[in-house]
Simulated assay, not measured.
Amino acid sequence: MRNISDIIEQHLKQILTNSQGVVEIKRSELADEFQCVPSQINYVISTRFTVEKGYIVESKRGGGGYIRITKVGLDRNKSLHRTILDIIGSSLTSREAEGFIHRLLEEQVISTREALMMRAVVCSDILALPPGVRDQVRASHLSAMLVAILKG
């Protein structure tokens, strides 16, 4: 059985698909619809609709406030290689790396096998280093793997 976060995520993704990649919601209305607390909506949006996963989230607070979620594809007009390296940057947490690998897989930039290998190389268990250094090494490893894959 799926949990409420999964259900809310799927609902928002369905709306995004039907509305050509942009959705504006009122947090309280969505919470009422799913009979949950508004902080549950915040949790779903902040953990499942991140830049690494291909989303831009904007919010306006106040009486007429809203949350706007925009699905952003990889910029194929720009060099895909350059776009990916810009997103990765010089440091990447384990969660960010996982989100980014999932996005590349979802957009069919990499295969399932390549995603599994990337996950194995960038996981925290393998990188037994201090956190700041670990995040830099993770970004470097992921960037190097993607450069090799995209050139191949």
Rank of each mutant, 00 (worst) to 15 (best):
I56Y: 14
E58M: 14
S59F: 12
K60R: 15
R61W: 08
G62I: 03
G62K: 01
G63W: 09
G63T: 13
G63V: 05
G63P: 13
G64F: 09
Y66K: 14
Y66L: 13
R68C: 09
R68P: 08
T70I: 15
T70W: 08
K71V: 05
V72E: 15
V72W: 06
G73D: 15
L74I: 11
L74W: 14
R76Y: 13
R76C: 06
K78S: 08
K78P: 03
S79M: 09
H81Y: 08
R82S: 10
R82H: 14
I84L: 08
L85H: 09
D86H: 03
D86E: 15
I87A: 02
G89V: 01
G89C: 01
G89T: 01
S90G: 10
L92E: 04
T93Q: 02
T93V: 03
T93G: 03
R95M: 05
R95Q: 09
E96Y: 02
E96A: 10
E98W: 09
E98T: 12
E98Y: 14
G99L: 09
G99W: 13
F100N: 03
L104A: 06
L105I: 02
E106Y: 08
E106P: 00
E107K: 09
Q108Y: 12
Q108P: 02
V109A: 02
I110A: 00
I110N: 00
S111P: 00
S111N: 00
T112I: 07
R113K: 12
